[in-house]
Design a protein around this nucleic acid. Structure first.
Lengths: 237, 237
DNA sequence: TTTCATCTAAATCTTTAGGTTTAGATAAAA
DNA sequence: TTTTATCTAAACCTAAAGATTTAGATGAAA
Protein backbone atom coordinates (compact mmCIF):
# COMPACT_ATOMS: atom_id res chain seq x y z
CA UNK A 1 0.00 0.00 0.00
CA UNK A 2 1.77 3.09 -1.20
CA UNK A 3 1.52 5.99 1.16
CA UNK A 4 2.38 9.63 0.65
CA UNK A 5 5.96 9.07 1.74
CA UNK A 6 7.43 12.08 0.03
CA UNK A 7 9.00 14.43 2.52
CA UNK A 8 5.94 16.47 3.04
CA UNK A 9 4.34 17.78 6.18
CA UNK A 10 1.79 15.66 7.90
CA UNK A 11 -1.74 15.93 6.66
CA UNK A 12 -3.76 18.05 9.07
CA UNK A 13 -6.94 16.34 10.20
CA UNK A 14 -9.90 17.63 12.18
CA UNK A 15 -12.31 15.20 13.79
CA UNK A 16 -15.95 16.16 14.16
CA UNK A 17 -18.05 14.06 16.52
CA UNK A 18 -20.57 15.09 19.11
CA UNK A 19 -19.45 12.23 21.33
CA UNK A 20 -16.11 13.19 22.81
CA UNK A 21 -14.99 9.64 23.48
CA UNK A 22 -15.62 8.77 19.86
CA UNK A 23 -13.59 11.70 18.65
CA UNK A 24 -10.78 10.79 21.01
CA UNK A 25 -10.75 7.23 19.81
CA UNK A 26 -10.51 8.31 16.22
CA UNK A 27 -7.87 10.84 17.13
CA UNK A 28 -5.63 8.24 18.69
CA UNK A 29 -6.13 5.92 15.80
CA UNK A 30 -5.20 8.54 13.26
CA UNK A 31 -2.28 9.84 15.27
CA UNK A 32 -0.73 6.39 15.16
CA UNK A 33 -0.11 7.02 11.50
CA UNK A 34 2.94 8.97 10.51
CA UNK A 35 1.27 10.79 7.68
CA UNK A 36 -1.56 12.30 9.63
CA UNK A 37 -2.00 14.51 12.60
CA UNK A 38 -5.25 15.38 14.28
CA UNK A 39 -4.99 19.07 15.06
CA UNK A 40 -8.42 19.55 16.59
CA UNK A 41 -11.69 18.01 17.63
CA UNK A 42 -15.09 19.63 17.15
CA UNK A 43 -18.27 18.71 18.97
CA UNK A 44 -20.68 20.24 16.50
CA UNK A 45 -20.95 21.71 13.04
CA UNK A 46 -20.52 25.34 14.01
CA UNK A 47 -17.34 24.75 15.93
CA UNK A 48 -16.13 22.58 13.08
CA UNK A 49 -16.70 25.35 10.56
CA UNK A 50 -14.80 27.95 12.53
CA UNK A 51 -11.95 25.53 13.13
CA UNK A 52 -11.81 24.74 9.45
CA UNK A 53 -11.75 28.41 8.55
CA UNK A 54 -8.96 28.91 11.05
CA UNK A 55 -6.74 25.92 10.36
CA UNK A 56 -7.68 24.97 6.81
CA UNK A 57 -7.06 21.27 7.49
CA UNK A 58 -6.43 18.82 4.69
CA UNK A 59 -9.05 16.41 5.84
CA UNK A 60 -12.12 16.46 8.04
CA UNK A 61 -13.40 13.26 9.52
CA UNK A 62 -17.02 13.96 10.09
CA UNK A 63 -19.44 11.91 12.12
CA UNK A 64 -23.01 12.05 10.91
CA UNK A 65 -25.85 11.00 13.11
CA UNK A 66 -28.65 9.85 10.95
CA UNK A 67 -31.65 10.99 12.97
CA UNK A 68 -30.63 14.61 12.83
CA UNK A 69 -29.24 14.60 9.34
CA UNK A 70 -27.83 18.10 9.52
CA UNK A 71 -24.38 16.66 9.10
CA UNK A 72 -25.10 16.75 5.40
CA UNK A 73 -25.87 20.44 5.65
CA UNK A 74 -22.65 20.92 7.52
CA UNK A 75 -20.74 19.31 4.67
CA UNK A 76 -22.47 21.60 2.22
CA UNK A 77 -21.58 24.59 4.36
CA UNK A 78 -17.95 23.58 4.51
CA UNK A 79 -17.86 23.26 0.74
CA UNK A 80 -19.01 26.83 0.48
CA UNK A 81 -16.08 28.06 2.54
CA UNK A 82 -13.88 27.75 -0.47
CA UNK A 83 -11.18 25.86 1.36
CA UNK A 84 -9.50 22.82 -0.17
CA UNK A 85 -10.42 20.70 2.83
CA UNK A 86 -11.70 17.27 1.89
CA UNK A 87 -14.33 15.56 3.95
CA UNK A 88 -14.65 11.93 4.91
CA UNK A 89 -17.92 10.83 6.44
CA UNK A 90 -17.61 8.50 9.39
CA UNK A 91 -20.93 7.13 10.47
CA UNK A 92 -22.76 4.14 11.83
CA UNK A 93 -25.39 4.32 9.13
CA UNK A 94 -25.10 2.74 5.72
CA UNK A 95 -28.36 4.26 4.64
CA UNK A 96 -28.50 4.72 0.88
CA UNK A 97 -30.14 8.10 1.13
CA UNK A 98 -27.51 9.34 3.53
CA UNK A 99 -24.69 8.11 1.34
CA UNK A 100 -26.27 9.72 -1.67
CA UNK A 101 -26.77 13.06 -0.01
CA UNK A 102 -23.36 13.15 1.58
CA UNK A 103 -21.62 12.41 -1.69
CA UNK A 104 -23.85 14.84 -3.49
CA UNK A 105 -22.84 17.78 -1.37
CA UNK A 106 -19.20 16.95 -1.79
CA UNK A 107 -17.97 14.30 0.63
CA UNK A 108 -14.84 12.57 -0.63
CA UNK A 109 -15.10 9.43 1.39
CA UNK A 110 -17.55 7.40 3.40
CA UNK A 111 -16.52 4.94 6.08
CA UNK A 112 -18.73 2.94 8.39
CA UNK A 113 -17.84 2.79 12.05
CA UNK A 114 -18.32 -0.94 11.90
CA UNK A 115 -15.52 -1.21 9.42
CA UNK A 116 -12.07 -2.07 10.61
CA UNK A 117 -9.73 0.77 11.40
CA UNK A 118 -7.55 -0.16 8.47
CA UNK A 119 -10.36 1.04 6.24
CA UNK A 120 -10.31 4.42 7.85
CA UNK A 121 -6.59 4.77 7.16
CA UNK A 122 -7.15 3.54 3.63
CA UNK A 123 -9.79 6.22 3.22
CA UNK A 124 -7.40 8.87 4.51
CA UNK A 125 -4.73 7.68 2.10
CA UNK A 126 -7.00 7.67 -0.91
CA UNK A 127 -8.67 10.94 -0.14
CA UNK A 128 -5.43 12.73 0.67
CA UNK A 129 -4.23 11.69 -2.75
CA UNK A 130 -7.23 13.39 -4.25
CA UNK A 131 -9.30 10.33 -4.89
CA UNK A 132 -12.73 9.31 -3.75
CA UNK A 133 -13.01 6.54 -1.19
CA UNK A 134 -16.25 4.63 -1.24
CA UNK A 135 -16.12 0.93 -0.34
CA UNK A 136 -17.75 -1.37 -2.86
CA UNK A 137 -20.78 -2.18 -0.76
CA UNK A 138 -21.52 1.47 -0.19
CA UNK A 139 -20.77 2.26 -3.80
CA UNK A 140 -23.42 -0.21 -4.87
CA UNK A 141 -25.87 1.31 -2.43
CA UNK A 142 -25.11 4.72 -3.76
CA UNK A 143 -25.77 3.73 -7.34
CA UNK A 144 -28.95 1.90 -6.54
CA UNK A 145 -30.24 5.06 -4.98
CA UNK A 146 -28.78 7.32 -7.62
CA UNK A 147 -30.31 5.41 -10.49
CA UNK A 148 -33.66 5.16 -8.77
CA UNK A 149 -33.53 8.85 -8.02
CA UNK A 150 -32.75 9.79 -11.58
CA UNK A 151 -35.56 7.60 -12.77
CA UNK A 152 -38.18 9.15 -10.53
CA UNK A 153 -36.84 12.58 -9.76
CA UNK A 154 -35.90 13.62 -13.23
CA UNK A 155 -39.16 12.51 -14.70
CA UNK A 156 -39.18 13.43 -18.31
CA UNK A 157 -41.91 15.98 -18.36
CA UNK A 158 -42.44 15.42 -22.02
CA UNK A 159 -44.17 12.12 -21.44
CA UNK A 160 -45.68 12.06 -18.01
CA UNK A 161 -48.45 9.74 -19.02
CA UNK A 162 -50.79 12.47 -20.11
CA UNK A 163 -50.91 13.55 -23.69
CA UNK A 164 -48.64 16.40 -24.54
CA UNK A 165 -50.84 18.85 -26.34
CA UNK A 166 -47.80 20.93 -27.24
CA UNK A 167 -47.21 18.54 -30.10
CA UNK A 168 -50.18 19.93 -31.95
CA UNK A 169 -48.74 23.42 -32.14
CA UNK A 170 -47.47 24.68 -35.47
CA UNK A 171 -44.02 26.24 -35.74
CA UNK A 172 -45.42 29.72 -35.71
CA UNK A 173 -47.54 28.97 -32.70
CA UNK A 174 -44.49 27.66 -30.90
CA UNK A 175 -42.66 30.84 -31.70
CA UNK A 176 -45.50 32.87 -30.26
CA UNK A 177 -45.70 30.68 -27.20
CA UNK A 178 -42.00 30.92 -26.56
CA UNK A 179 -42.28 34.69 -26.51
CA UNK A 180 -45.22 34.51 -24.14
CA UNK A 181 -42.98 32.39 -21.93
CA UNK A 182 -40.65 35.33 -21.68
CA UNK A 183 -43.42 37.53 -20.41
CA UNK A 184 -44.17 39.24 -23.71
CA UNK A 185 -47.47 41.01 -24.34
CA UNK A 186 -49.29 40.54 -27.61
CA UNK A 187 -47.89 43.83 -28.76
CA UNK A 188 -44.39 42.64 -27.92
CA UNK A 189 -44.95 39.45 -29.86
CA UNK A 190 -46.25 41.39 -32.84
CA UNK A 191 -43.20 43.63 -32.83
CA UNK A 192 -40.86 40.70 -32.37
CA UNK A 193 -42.31 38.57 -35.13
CA UNK A 194 -43.09 41.43 -37.50
CA UNK A 195 -46.78 40.61 -37.69
CA UNK A 196 -49.86 42.53 -36.66
CA UNK A 197 -51.28 42.25 -33.20
CA UNK A 198 -54.44 40.76 -34.68
CA UNK A 199 -52.42 37.95 -36.13
CA UNK A 200 -50.83 37.38 -32.77
CA UNK A 201 -54.27 37.11 -31.25
CA UNK A 202 -55.27 34.60 -33.87
CA UNK A 203 -52.24 32.47 -33.09
CA UNK A 204 -52.78 32.81 -29.40
CA UNK A 205 -56.38 31.77 -29.76
CA UNK A 206 -55.35 28.73 -31.70
CA UNK A 207 -52.82 27.94 -29.02
CA UNK A 208 -55.54 28.17 -26.39
CA UNK A 209 -57.73 25.80 -28.38
CA UNK A 210 -54.95 23.28 -28.77
CA UNK A 211 -53.74 23.43 -25.21
CA UNK A 212 -57.29 23.49 -23.88
CA UNK A 213 -56.75 26.55 -21.77
CA UNK A 214 -58.47 29.89 -21.63
CA UNK A 215 -55.71 32.30 -20.79
CA UNK A 216 -52.22 33.44 -21.54
CA UNK A 217 -50.96 32.63 -18.07
CA UNK A 218 -52.53 29.19 -18.19
CA UNK A 219 -50.93 28.51 -21.55
CA UNK A 220 -47.57 29.55 -20.16
CA UNK A 221 -48.02 27.35 -17.12
CA UNK A 222 -49.02 24.42 -19.28
CA UNK A 223 -45.95 24.88 -21.42
CA UNK A 224 -43.68 25.01 -18.40
CA UNK A 225 -45.27 21.94 -16.89
CA UNK A 226 -44.79 19.95 -20.04
CA UNK A 227 -41.22 21.09 -20.34
CA UNK A 228 -41.75 23.21 -23.43
CA UNK A 229 -38.52 24.07 -25.14
CA UNK A 230 -38.61 26.44 -28.08
CA UNK A 231 -36.95 24.89 -31.10
CA UNK A 232 -35.26 27.89 -32.58
CA UNK A 233 -35.13 31.03 -30.60
CA UNK A 234 -35.40 34.40 -32.19
CA UNK A 235 -32.91 36.65 -30.54
CA UNK A 236 -34.26 39.95 -29.41
CA UNK A 237 -31.71 42.77 -29.32
CA UNK B 1 -12.40 -14.98 -5.96
CA UNK B 2 -15.77 -16.50 -5.26
CA UNK B 3 -17.80 -17.14 -8.34
CA UNK B 4 -21.42 -18.13 -8.73
CA UNK B 5 -20.63 -21.82 -8.46
CA UNK B 6 -24.07 -22.92 -7.35
CA UNK B 7 -25.53 -25.36 -9.84
CA UNK B 8 -27.27 -22.74 -11.87
CA UNK B 9 -27.48 -22.26 -15.55
CA UNK B 10 -24.92 -20.15 -17.24
CA UNK B 11 -25.53 -16.44 -17.28
CA UNK B 12 -26.76 -15.40 -20.70
CA UNK B 13 -24.75 -12.57 -22.18
CA UNK B 14 -25.31 -10.44 -25.25
CA UNK B 15 -22.46 -8.42 -26.72
CA UNK B 16 -23.21 -5.14 -28.45
CA UNK B 17 -20.47 -3.68 -30.59
CA UNK B 18 -20.58 -2.15 -34.01
CA UNK B 19 -17.20 -3.65 -34.84
CA UNK B 20 -17.70 -7.33 -35.44
CA UNK B 21 -14.12 -8.31 -34.65
CA UNK B 22 -14.43 -6.57 -31.30
CA UNK B 23 -17.59 -8.36 -30.46
CA UNK B 24 -16.06 -11.66 -31.46
CA UNK B 25 -13.05 -11.06 -29.29
CA UNK B 26 -15.21 -10.31 -26.29
CA UNK B 27 -17.36 -13.29 -27.08
CA UNK B 28 -14.44 -15.68 -27.04
CA UNK B 29 -13.12 -14.17 -23.88
CA UNK B 30 -16.41 -14.51 -22.08
CA UNK B 31 -17.08 -17.98 -23.39
CA UNK B 32 -13.86 -19.14 -21.80
CA UNK B 33 -15.59 -18.71 -18.47
CA UNK B 34 -17.80 -21.48 -17.24
CA UNK B 35 -20.37 -19.19 -15.75
CA UNK B 36 -21.17 -17.20 -18.83
CA UNK B 37 -22.32 -17.83 -22.31
CA UNK B 38 -22.60 -15.30 -25.07
CA UNK B 39 -25.86 -16.10 -26.80
CA UNK B 40 -25.78 -13.33 -29.37
CA UNK B 41 -23.96 -10.37 -30.86
CA UNK B 42 -25.60 -7.14 -31.93
CA UNK B 43 -24.11 -4.58 -34.26
CA UNK B 44 -26.28 -1.68 -33.23
CA UNK B 45 -28.76 -0.52 -30.63
CA UNK B 46 -31.91 -1.50 -32.47
CA UNK B 47 -30.80 -5.04 -33.03
CA UNK B 48 -29.66 -5.18 -29.43
CA UNK B 49 -33.06 -4.12 -28.17
CA UNK B 50 -34.95 -6.72 -30.16
CA UNK B 51 -32.49 -9.41 -29.09
CA UNK B 52 -32.91 -8.39 -25.48
CA UNK B 53 -36.66 -8.49 -25.77
CA UNK B 54 -36.41 -11.91 -27.34
CA UNK B 55 -33.81 -13.58 -25.13
CA UNK B 56 -33.97 -11.57 -21.93
CA UNK B 57 -30.27 -12.05 -21.24
CA UNK B 58 -28.82 -11.62 -17.78
CA UNK B 59 -26.14 -9.25 -18.90
CA UNK B 60 -25.46 -7.01 -21.83
CA UNK B 61 -21.92 -5.97 -22.60
CA UNK B 62 -22.37 -2.74 -24.44
CA UNK B 63 -19.76 -0.89 -26.39
CA UNK B 64 -20.20 2.84 -26.44
CA UNK B 65 -18.50 4.97 -29.01
CA UNK B 66 -18.04 8.38 -27.56
CA UNK B 67 -18.43 10.52 -30.64
CA UNK B 68 -21.94 9.32 -31.28
CA UNK B 69 -23.03 9.04 -27.69
CA UNK B 70 -26.31 7.35 -28.47
CA UNK B 71 -25.13 4.32 -26.59
CA UNK B 72 -26.36 6.09 -23.50
CA UNK B 73 -29.76 6.47 -25.05
CA UNK B 74 -29.68 2.81 -25.90
CA UNK B 75 -29.10 1.96 -22.25
CA UNK B 76 -31.99 4.15 -21.26
CA UNK B 77 -34.18 2.43 -23.83
CA UNK B 78 -33.23 -0.99 -22.55
CA UNK B 79 -34.11 0.05 -19.01
CA UNK B 80 -37.56 0.94 -20.21
CA UNK B 81 -38.12 -2.57 -21.56
CA UNK B 82 -38.81 -3.74 -18.06
CA UNK B 83 -36.47 -6.70 -18.32
CA UNK B 84 -34.09 -7.58 -15.53
CA UNK B 85 -31.12 -7.44 -17.88
CA UNK B 86 -28.13 -5.67 -16.40
CA UNK B 87 -25.83 -3.61 -18.55
CA UNK B 88 -22.08 -3.30 -18.44
CA UNK B 89 -20.51 -0.56 -20.48
CA UNK B 90 -17.40 -1.54 -22.35
CA UNK B 91 -15.70 1.39 -23.94
CA UNK B 92 -12.41 2.98 -24.84
CA UNK B 93 -13.38 6.27 -23.27
CA UNK B 94 -12.94 7.13 -19.62
CA UNK B 95 -14.66 10.44 -20.10
CA UNK B 96 -16.26 11.65 -16.88
CA UNK B 97 -19.38 12.86 -18.60
CA UNK B 98 -19.84 9.55 -20.34
CA UNK B 99 -19.41 7.61 -17.13
CA UNK B 100 -21.84 9.88 -15.38
CA UNK B 101 -24.49 9.61 -18.01
CA UNK B 102 -24.14 5.88 -18.43
CA UNK B 103 -24.47 5.26 -14.72
CA UNK B 104 -27.31 7.71 -14.50
CA UNK B 105 -29.46 5.89 -16.99
CA UNK B 106 -28.86 2.59 -15.24
CA UNK B 107 -25.61 0.94 -16.28
CA UNK B 108 -24.40 -1.53 -13.66
CA UNK B 109 -20.79 -1.62 -14.62
CA UNK B 110 -18.20 0.25 -16.59
CA UNK B 111 -15.06 -1.32 -17.97
CA UNK B 112 -12.40 0.25 -20.15
CA UNK B 113 -11.13 -1.66 -23.14
CA UNK B 114 -7.64 -0.83 -22.04
CA UNK B 115 -8.17 -2.75 -18.86
CA UNK B 116 -7.03 -6.31 -18.64
CA UNK B 117 -9.51 -9.00 -19.47
CA UNK B 118 -9.58 -10.14 -15.87
CA UNK B 119 -11.38 -6.91 -15.07
CA UNK B 120 -14.10 -7.70 -17.52
CA UNK B 121 -14.69 -11.05 -15.88
CA UNK B 122 -14.62 -9.39 -12.47
CA UNK B 123 -17.24 -6.98 -13.70
CA UNK B 124 -19.39 -9.84 -14.94
CA UNK B 125 -19.05 -11.58 -11.58
CA UNK B 126 -19.94 -8.53 -9.55
CA UNK B 127 -22.79 -7.43 -11.73
CA UNK B 128 -24.28 -10.88 -12.02
CA UNK B 129 -24.37 -10.93 -8.24
CA UNK B 130 -26.41 -7.77 -8.30
CA UNK B 131 -23.67 -5.35 -7.46
CA UNK B 132 -22.30 -2.35 -9.23
CA UNK B 133 -18.88 -2.62 -10.80
CA UNK B 134 -17.01 0.63 -11.16
CA UNK B 135 -13.22 0.53 -10.85
CA UNK B 136 -11.79 3.01 -8.41
CA UNK B 137 -10.33 5.34 -10.97
CA UNK B 138 -13.61 5.58 -12.81
CA UNK B 139 -15.47 5.87 -9.54
CA UNK B 140 -13.42 8.92 -8.67
CA UNK B 141 -14.07 10.39 -12.06
CA UNK B 142 -17.75 9.82 -11.64
CA UNK B 143 -17.88 11.57 -8.32
CA UNK B 144 -15.84 14.51 -9.49
CA UNK B 145 -18.35 15.01 -12.22
CA UNK B 146 -21.34 14.23 -10.06
CA UNK B 147 -20.37 16.70 -7.37
CA UNK B 148 -19.56 19.38 -9.88
CA UNK B 149 -22.83 18.73 -11.61
CA UNK B 150 -24.84 18.97 -8.44
CA UNK B 151 -23.11 22.18 -7.57
CA UNK B 152 -23.84 23.87 -10.87
CA UNK B 153 -26.86 22.08 -12.20
CA UNK B 154 -28.99 22.07 -9.10
CA UNK B 155 -28.42 25.70 -8.35
CA UNK B 156 -30.57 26.64 -5.48
CA UNK B 157 -32.97 28.95 -7.14
CA UNK B 158 -33.68 30.71 -3.90
CA UNK B 159 -30.28 32.31 -3.85
CA UNK B 160 -28.86 32.49 -7.32
CA UNK B 161 -26.85 35.56 -6.58
CA UNK B 162 -29.59 37.97 -7.44
CA UNK B 163 -31.85 39.32 -4.79
CA UNK B 164 -35.02 37.38 -4.29
CA UNK B 165 -37.73 39.97 -4.40
CA UNK B 166 -40.27 37.39 -3.30
CA UNK B 167 -39.12 38.02 0.25
CA UNK B 168 -40.80 41.39 0.26
CA UNK B 169 -44.24 39.95 -0.32
CA UNK B 170 -46.73 39.93 2.54
CA UNK B 171 -48.61 36.77 3.41
CA UNK B 172 -51.69 37.93 1.62
CA UNK B 173 -49.72 38.81 -1.45
CA UNK B 174 -48.15 35.37 -1.42
CA UNK B 175 -51.58 33.83 -1.26
CA UNK B 176 -52.67 35.85 -4.23
CA UNK B 177 -49.53 35.00 -6.15
CA UNK B 178 -49.88 31.32 -5.47
CA UNK B 179 -53.34 31.40 -6.98
CA UNK B 180 -52.05 33.26 -10.00
CA UNK B 181 -49.51 30.47 -10.31
CA UNK B 182 -52.37 28.07 -10.78
CA UNK B 183 -53.70 30.07 -13.66
CA UNK B 184 -56.41 31.90 -11.73
CA UNK B 185 -57.97 35.10 -13.04
CA UNK B 186 -58.53 38.03 -10.70
CA UNK B 187 -62.14 36.99 -10.41
CA UNK B 188 -61.04 33.49 -9.43
CA UNK B 189 -58.72 34.89 -6.81
CA UNK B 190 -61.46 37.11 -5.43
CA UNK B 191 -63.83 34.17 -5.14
CA UNK B 192 -61.16 31.96 -3.65
CA UNK B 193 -60.00 34.43 -1.01
CA UNK B 194 -63.45 35.90 -0.31
CA UNK B 195 -62.39 39.43 -1.18
CA UNK B 196 -63.50 41.81 -3.87
CA UNK B 197 -61.91 41.86 -7.24
CA UNK B 198 -60.77 45.40 -6.55
CA UNK B 199 -58.82 44.20 -3.57
CA UNK B 200 -57.26 41.52 -5.68
CA UNK B 201 -56.13 44.17 -8.12
CA UNK B 202 -54.63 46.16 -5.29
CA UNK B 203 -52.67 43.16 -4.09
CA UNK B 204 -51.60 42.27 -7.58
CA UNK B 205 -50.41 45.79 -8.19
CA UNK B 206 -48.39 45.70 -5.03
CA UNK B 207 -46.94 42.40 -6.13
CA UNK B 208 -45.96 43.93 -9.45
CA UNK B 209 -44.25 46.80 -7.66
CA UNK B 210 -42.32 44.49 -5.41
CA UNK B 211 -41.31 42.03 -8.09
CA UNK B 212 -40.56 44.85 -10.51
CA UNK B 213 -42.70 43.42 -13.26
CA UNK B 214 -45.60 44.83 -15.20
CA UNK B 215 -47.79 41.83 -15.82
CA UNK B 216 -49.43 38.82 -14.34
CA UNK B 217 -47.58 36.41 -16.56
CA UNK B 218 -44.27 38.07 -15.77
CA UNK B 219 -44.99 37.84 -12.06
CA UNK B 220 -45.79 34.17 -12.44
CA UNK B 221 -42.62 33.58 -14.41
CA UNK B 222 -40.57 35.44 -11.85
CA UNK B 223 -42.04 33.35 -9.08
CA UNK B 224 -41.32 30.11 -10.90
CA UNK B 225 -37.76 31.17 -11.66
CA UNK B 226 -37.09 31.99 -8.06
CA UNK B 227 -38.58 28.73 -6.92
CA UNK B 228 -41.61 30.24 -5.24
CA UNK B 229 -43.34 27.83 -2.91
CA UNK B 230 -46.60 28.91 -1.30
CA UNK B 231 -46.38 28.58 2.46
CA UNK B 232 -49.86 27.40 3.29
CA UNK B 233 -52.16 26.45 0.53
CA UNK B 234 -55.82 27.17 0.66
CA UNK B 235 -57.60 24.14 -0.59
CA UNK B 236 -60.28 24.79 -3.12
CA UNK B 237 -63.11 22.27 -3.08
C1' DT C 1 -50.86 57.70 21.59
C1' DT C 2 -49.09 58.18 17.40
C1' DT C 3 -46.93 55.89 13.79
C1' DC C 4 -46.56 52.21 10.59
C1' DA C 5 -47.69 48.07 7.98
C1' DT C 6 -51.28 45.46 6.28
C1' DC C 7 -55.60 44.32 4.38
C1' DT C 8 -59.49 45.91 2.64
C1' DA C 9 -62.15 48.31 -1.18
C1' DA C 10 -64.20 51.96 -3.63
C1' DA C 11 -64.19 55.12 -8.05
C1' DT C 12 -62.33 56.08 -12.44
C1' DC C 13 -59.75 55.35 -16.05
C1' DT C 14 -56.75 53.21 -20.02
C1' DT C 15 -54.83 49.35 -21.97
C1' DT C 16 -54.57 44.39 -22.98
C1' DA C 17 -56.60 40.28 -23.61
C1' DG C 18 -59.65 37.34 -25.66
C1' DG C 19 -63.86 35.84 -28.82
C1' DT C 20 -65.83 35.57 -33.26
C1' DT C 21 -66.22 35.90 -37.93
C1' DT C 22 -64.47 36.46 -42.28
C1' DA C 23 -61.04 36.14 -45.69
C1' DG C 24 -56.73 36.48 -48.71
C1' DA C 25 -52.19 34.10 -49.85
C1' DT C 26 -49.37 30.13 -50.18
C1' DA C 27 -47.76 25.68 -50.44
C1' DA C 28 -48.20 20.96 -49.89
C1' DA C 29 -50.89 16.90 -50.49
C1' DA C 30 -54.40 13.96 -52.59
C1' DT D 1 -57.15 20.29 -59.64
C1' DT D 2 -59.29 20.53 -55.52
C1' DT D 3 -58.53 19.95 -50.73
C1' DT D 4 -56.16 20.99 -46.64
C1' DA D 5 -53.05 23.25 -43.48
C1' DT D 6 -50.81 27.29 -42.34
C1' DC D 7 -49.98 32.06 -41.84
C1' DT D 8 -51.69 36.24 -42.34
C1' DA D 9 -55.02 40.06 -40.87
C1' DA D 10 -59.06 42.75 -40.84
C1' DA D 11 -63.54 44.41 -38.15
C1' DC D 12 -66.10 44.39 -34.12
C1' DC D 13 -67.01 43.32 -29.76
C1' DT D 14 -66.78 42.11 -24.49
C1' DA D 15 -64.17 41.04 -20.64
C1' DA D 16 -60.25 41.21 -18.06
C1' DA D 17 -56.14 43.40 -16.61
C1' DG D 18 -53.69 47.15 -14.88
C1' DA D 19 -52.87 52.25 -13.08
C1' DT D 20 -54.00 55.60 -9.87
C1' DT D 21 -55.97 57.77 -6.12
C1' DT D 22 -58.32 57.76 -1.99
C1' DA D 23 -59.63 55.85 2.29
C1' DG D 24 -61.52 52.91 6.28
C1' DA D 25 -60.20 49.22 9.73
C1' DT D 26 -57.00 46.75 12.34
C1' DG D 27 -53.20 45.55 15.10
C1' DA D 28 -48.50 45.85 16.29
C1' DA D 29 -44.70 48.68 17.48
C1' DA D 30 -42.48 52.86 19.21
Amino acid sequence: MRRTVDFKRKQKVIVVDDKYEHASGVRELVNLENDYEVIANAGNANVAISLIKKYQPDIVLMDINMPEMDGVNAIAEIQKLGVKTRIIVLTAYDDADLIYRAMKVGACGYVLKTMVSAQLIKALDEVSMGKIYLPNVLCSKFFEYFQEFEKNGNVNKEDDGEENLLHYLTNREEEVLSLLLEGATYKDVARELFISETTVKTHVNNIFQKLQVKEKTQAVLYAINKGFKPKAKKIAV
